[in-house]
Computed example of a mutant assay.
Amino acid sequence: MMKKGIYISALYNSKTGGGIVSDTIKQVLQTHAEINLHVLEFPMFKNQWKKLFYMLTGRLLGSTPAIEKSIIRQIEKNHPDFIFINTSSLGLLEKKIRRNFPGIRVVSLFHNVEFVYTKDAWKTSRKINKLLTLLVTWYNEKLAVRYSSVIITLNKRDSDELALLYGRCADGILPICLQDRFDPSQLKIDQSDRPKKALFVGSNFYANYYGIKWFVEHVAPYVKNVKIIIVGNGFERNKKELEIYDNIEVVGTVESLDEFYYNADFVISPIFEGSGMKTKTAEALMFGKTIFGTKEAFEGYSFDYGKVGCLCNNAEDFICAIDNYNLTKFRFNDYSRNMYLRNYSFNKLHEILTDYIVNH
């Protein structure tokens, strides 16, 4: 039986991890044979004063009273069986939905435990506006936990943190899954005597910035015959700061990451803080890359670290893993690719969402 649903989300930048995951989930729901989906998306605030004003009313991302009223009207008009809310930062809206439509099933996806994520960001700046964001985030997330019919997190750690913070764990786990972009015809055959190519991918926000800055200072000077390439939205702003050794190249914002993955021998992921799961780990698996990453980079993933690459939690681990890496003919790790296909692919996401939405 066909189920009618409404998907509610802010419009995320499609080049960020959150944007990639959001687009993939929306695509699965839109193309599902047993779901008739109505999409309601709204832009995030760009004006900082407008953002601050609505934050003082308890709202985040881009939500306003006018947007909330419009969403309520669409629910009245469409009579959905379920509502899928693509964040835990719209708790105030969830409260209004459940009070107006107590019988509708509201499924909320927590990309992170946003309070933990925002708290870590606040630690790096200690600015008053960040503290306000932290308080409003806690308020909305608490409401989301209270009013959601079903809570989905990306991993068990986030579920446990929700239980500690708000007294309720997740009802289900939905690991990051991505639409497949891998093209085997693009694999490069190269066994020449050349430097190893290490790729770092990530947008320029606090966890990525401090992670790669640490790597540049504590690992880059000590690895042999390695070219380190840094790609991601906004990193061009830190080009002079990070290119302090000859073996580092900061590319920054690009239209497509695919070519960089094909050309890389391995991916480095020196991430020490955060919540949720790291999209770039799933992306690296998709392209069949060997990954040298921290415990945080691998959080929520289930695979053999030694077969994917190496678990590296300090500088010595990274240096040893990189120095001992042997160049391969196709720059390709079969085990990584198979882990993506088995656990983190579009088909896997379809299977899990069918279970949570269609079969209930």
Results as ranks from 00 to 15, higher is better:
Ser108Thr: 15
Ser159Asn: 11
Arg99Asp: 13
Ser63Leu: 15
His111Tyr: 13
Lys51Tyr: 11
Ile85Tyr: 04
Trp49Ser: 15
Leu60Glu: 07
Ser63Phe: 01
Lys119Pro: 00
Asn100Pro: 02
Leu40Asn: 08
Asp160Gln: 14
Val116Met: 02
Lys119Asp: 05
Val150His: 09
Lys77Thr: 07
Asn155Glu: 12
Ser88Phe: 07
Val116Leu: 04
Ala121Val: 00
Thr137Ala: 06
Met44Trp: 01
Lys50Gln: 10
Leu109Met: 12
Phe45Trp: 09
Asp158Val: 06
Phe115Trp: 05
Val107Glu: 03
Ser125Pro: 02
Thr64Leu: 07
Ser148Gln: 04
Ser70Trp: 03
Glu114Ile: 00
Arg99Phe: 15
Ala66Arg: 06
Trp49Ile: 15
Glu94Phe: 03
Gln48Thr: 13
Glu94Lys: 13
Ile67Gly: 03
Gly91Pro: 05
Asp120Phe: 02
Glu76Tyr: 02
Asn140Pro: 14
Asn47Tyr: 09
Val145His: 04
Glu68Asp: 13
Lys130Gln: 15
Gly167Asn: 13
Phe84Gln: 03
Leu90Lys: 09
Leu131Phe: 15
Leu132Ala: 10
Pro43Lys: 12
Thr153Tyr: 01
Asp171Lys: 10
Met44Asp: 08
Gly58Leu: 08
Lys96Met: 03
Leu131Trp: 14
Ser125Tyr: 09
Arg168Gly: 06
Val107Ser: 05
Ile85Asn: 05
Ser125Ala: 11
Asn140Glu: 05
Glu76Ala: 11
Lys96Asn: 10
Leu60Asp: 09
Gly62Ala: 09
Cys169Trp: 05
Glu68Tyr: 03
Asn86Tyr: 04
Ile83Met: 10
Asp160His: 04
Ile71Ser: 03
Phe110Gly: 00
Leu92Asn: 06
Leu61Phe: 06
Val136Ala: 06
Leu93Cys: 11
Thr133Phe: 08
Lys130Ser: 15
Ala170Gln: 10
Glu94Leu: 15
Ile152Gln: 06
Ile128Phe: 14
Gln48Asp: 10
Phe53Ser: 14
Thr64Arg: 00
Asp158His: 09
Ile97Glu: 01
Glu41Trp: 13
Leu135Ser: 13
Phe82Cys: 07
Arg99Glu: 15
Trp138Pro: 01
Gly172Phe: 08
Gly58Val: 02
Thr137His: 01
Ala144Thr: 12
